[in-house]
């Protein structure tokens, strides 16, 4: 029983991390059709900013966390201005390849300017300590992660449903040009989408860092790869799909950890991706693929 509860928590916390990242990807994609491969480097930027703040300013974890969130948001918005604006109205593959290029540049900049080796950042370890609840050993980090993700998702829903800007963003995911015809500034919609995306990446960064305790140039790569898979699983561009895909992927991963014999540990990824491919054979557009909507063309 203990074991089962622990594994469920494991799945939830993995799923939460993927859901945060997948949501960030999906928000940007739904509005401007961009598959942002550089999302992982936003996470890494958050990680490196923790290092910078710790070594230059203070090790106070609160400052470090807020600083990392800020840096992630700024980096995300900045990338849009510099790299993605010229290809905003280009076709999907142009945007995708641009994002690739950006990702390569950033990874190698980290390598060149900081170090190719991992850098330890240990002041977030305090988030992660074991506690006993009703006789079951669990880690606080997993609880934090799940709860924070739940809160973030709720806030996002409220923002999208209630604020006028949120409504505009939902409209933009249906028909961006029509939103501009309503006088809403395209640049602002896109900037907010990237800011939200960066904020979610920053949150994920904090939890990944609390678990891993070090950052290297390819820090964000694996998490974002998973987030992509989560997006595709849920249906690319669908926000509920991103959340669903994230948690589903978390469950599949933990399921693999539990089911696969120890000697196949290294093959976990292969099995996970294989299952995902099978799901896609069943539903090529993902589980909750969004309706392609351009109004009612006659």
């Amino acid at each position: 029983m203990d074991y089962a509860i622990q594994q469920v928590l494991n799945a939830l916390s993995f799923g939460a991390e993927y859901a945060l990242l997948a949501l960030g990807l999906a928000i940007v994609f739904s509005i401007m059709g961009l598959v942002n491969f550089a999302h992982g480097e936003i996470i890494a930027a958050g990680g490196y900013s923790m290092f910078a703040i710790t070594s230059l300013l203070t090790g106070n974890p609160f400052v470090v966390i807020v600083g990392a969130l800020l840096v992630a948001v700024l980096a995300s918005v900045l990338l849009e201005r510099v790299a993605f604006r010229p290809v905003r109205y280009a076709d999907a593959s142009t945007g995708l390849l641009t994002a690739f290029g950006v990702s390569m540049i950033l990874q190698n900049l980290f390598l060149l300017l900081v170090s190719p080796r991992p850098i330890a950042i240990t002041n977030l370890y305090f988030l992660n300590w074991p506690i006993e609840v009703a006789g079951v050993q669990i880690s606080t980090l997993q609880v934090f992660e799940t709860v924070t993700t739940a809160i973030a998702i709720c806030l996002l829903v409220v923002f999208l449903k209630k604020s006028s800007f949120g409504i505009a963003m939902r409209a933009a995911s249906l028909d961006f040009e029509m939103v501009r015809l309503m006088g809403i500034r395209a640049n602002r919609v896109v900037a907010v989408a990237f800011a939200v995306s960066g904020l979610l990446a920053g949150l994920a960064c904090i939890f990944i860092m609390a678990r891993r305790g070090s950052v290297d140039p390819t820090f964000g790569f694996n998490p974002v790869l998973k987030a992509f898979v989560a997006c595709v699983l849920g249906g690319f561009g669908s926000l509920p799909g991103a959340v669903l895909g994230g948690f589903l992927l978390g469950a599949i991963e933990v399921g693999m950890l539990v089911l696969l014999p120890q000697s196949y540990g290294g093959m976990k990824e292969a099995f996970v991706f294989g299952i995902v491919a099978l799901i896609l054979v069943w539903r090529p557009d993902g589980i909750l693929s969004p309706a392609v909507e351009k109004g009612d063309k006659l």
Partner: peptide, 22 residues
Amino acid sequence: ELLGLSGIMLGVVIVVTMAFRS
């Protein structure tokens, strides 16, 4: 020593090509 320079150059090639002549 400028480790990573070639990666940066490749990325720049992609981004610039996409922006100006996709």
